[in-house]
Design a protein around this nucleic acid. Structure first.
Length: 416
RNA sequence: GUGAGCGUAGCCCAGUGGUUAAGGCGCCAGGUUGUGGCCCUGGAGAUCGUGGGUUCAAAUCCCACCGUUCACCCCA
């Protein structure tokens, strides 16, 4: 029997209340901040992700769903949300709109890896991006918006970690200083960190091994090596966050995995963190659009994984609004009543009343059991007696009261 | 890709070598030939993850594979 592929899952009806809840909060948030929806294809030219997310990492070899279609074109399942947004921005000339252009997306993304807590091969991301504006106030607004998102979901006890990782002018100098620092400890580094030293030195800073963390603690801080422009930008972000009363923790060891980030980076974490705990993160990526062939365009954004959010909602036992129940259930006895019931159900639905029609010629008892387990407020019962009077029995399932209603009036009573 | 734990009905799970694999939830039906929730009775539902091996005998022991969980790598 075929099963859902590894790292994928079905979202069953009782789970969908969480998804609807989070998606609803996300879209109303974006509406509040003037972000408009953008949907991009679920697969893209593989180069889009190879150019933007893959530098210096083994994402392409190991983690990306890359395949050739029947024409031989190299495609990749959407690996993340930001690069496609930038591609669309360039492709549709959105730089001709008043800047910044503010866009958001909710949709699946794919990574080929072994599943673990809150990480799946097909997962879902919500993200928003503001393109075409370098003002640090926008960084602050994006962070404030991220915070409001989690607040609106009822996720509390979160903290925001903030850092700046400089720009292409000042970061290389810092990386050199960092390498020098670590080369003094090379014999004490774990094998992974030895590889990082060559391939992705920023990642040295968040190795989980305690021995490596000791070395990271004494490492030079990137914020001491920022160029004057980056320094000013970073200070302004903090000033604006302060003005909006957004608490944050400066974390000089916060780096993000992808190359394309510049200046501001931030992550949102539960206070009590565990292995895969980060709920969302983002930052500025001032060089990304240019690297895709667009004009130099500064941009800043945020993304969060819906699975992790839902995991936390469940952990916190947050109250989630239930999906609406149908308004009424129609039970019938006998073929003649069944035919009439079908007609009534159709009419009621035309009037906007959600109706479940009994099926299968069950006993009345069985039909009412079904209505009960569906949690429906009203049962309509149609038998010979009601038919002969052109009427129907209306039963209030919670009070057990029932009365005979003329057929012509039933819609009005159910939906006055 | 690496390491560890776990796979028994739709779900939770008992069962560590010996008859027809036990129970709870849920499902279906009856108890009430026209009335649900509680209760009672009955029923359906399990290739014991898959394949191989050990043994007179395997859900139980061994091996491999698959899946899953957690962690690592990586992190979008």
């Amino acid at each position: 029997m075929p099963k859902a592929p590894r790292g994928t899952f079905d979202i069953l009806p009782q789970e969908h209340i969480y998804w609807k809840y989070v998606e609803g909060k996300a879209t109303s948030l974006c509406q509040l901040y003037g972000y408009q929806p953008l949907s991009t294809p679920i697969f893209e030219d593989a180069q889009l992700f190879i150019k933007t997310v893959a530098g210096g990492t083994d994402i392409v070899d190991k983690e990306m769903y890359v395949f050739a279609d029947k024409s031989g074109q190299e495609l990749a399942l959407r690996a993340e949300g930001t690069a496609p947004v930038c591609r669309a921005y360039i492709e549709h000339g959105l730089f001709n709109l008043p800047q910044p252009v503010k866009l958001y997306y909710i949709g699946p993304a794919f990574r080929y890896e072994r599943p673990q807590a809150g990480r799946y091969r097909q997962h879902h991301q919500f993200g928003f991006e503001a393109l075409g504006e370098a003002d640090p106030a926008l960084d602050a607004e994006v962070i404030e918006m991220a915070r409001r998102f989690f607040d609106s979901l009822g996720l509390s006890r979160l903290s925001i970690h903030l850092n700046s990782i400089g720009c292409k002018l000042c970061r290389p100098g810092y990386l050199e200083v960092l390498r020098q620092h670590y080369s003094g400890y090379i014999d004490h580094l774990c094998p992974d960190c030895k590889a990082r030293l060559v391939r992705n030195p920023l990642r040295l800073l968040d190795c989980k091994k305690t021995s490596c963390q000791e070395i990271a603690k004494t490492a030079p801080k990137i914020t001491d090596y920022l160029c004057p422009e980056c320094q000013l930008h970073f200070q302004s972000v903090q000033k604006y966050l302060g003005a909006m009363n957004i608490p944050f923790h400066l974390n000089p060891r916060l780096v993000r995995g992808l190359d394309y980030y510049t200046r501001t980076v931030f992550e949102v974490e539960p206070r009590e963190k565990g292995g895969q705990s980060t709920l969302g993160g983002g930052g500025r990526y001032d060089d990304l659009i240019e690297s895709l062939g667009g004009k130099p365009t500064p941009a800043v954004g945020f993304a969060a994984g819906l699975e992790r959010i839902i995991l936390n909602l469940k952990k916190q036992k947050t109250d989630i609004p239930a999906l609406p129940e149908p308004d009424a259930f129609i039970a019938y006895m006998g073929e003649e009543a069944k035919i009439e019931a079908l007609k009534i159900a159709s009419e009621l639905r035309k009037a906007g009343i959600a109706v479940i029609m009994a099926t299968g010629d069950k006993s009345l008892r069985g039909q009412l059991r079904q209505a009960n387990s569906l949690g429906i407020a009203y049962a309509l019962i149609l038998g010979k007696q009601e038919l002969s009077k052109r009427s129907i029995m209306l039963r209030d399932m919670s009070s057990r009261e029932q009365k005979i209603i003329p057929l012509a009036e039933i819609a009005k009573i159910l939906k006055p």
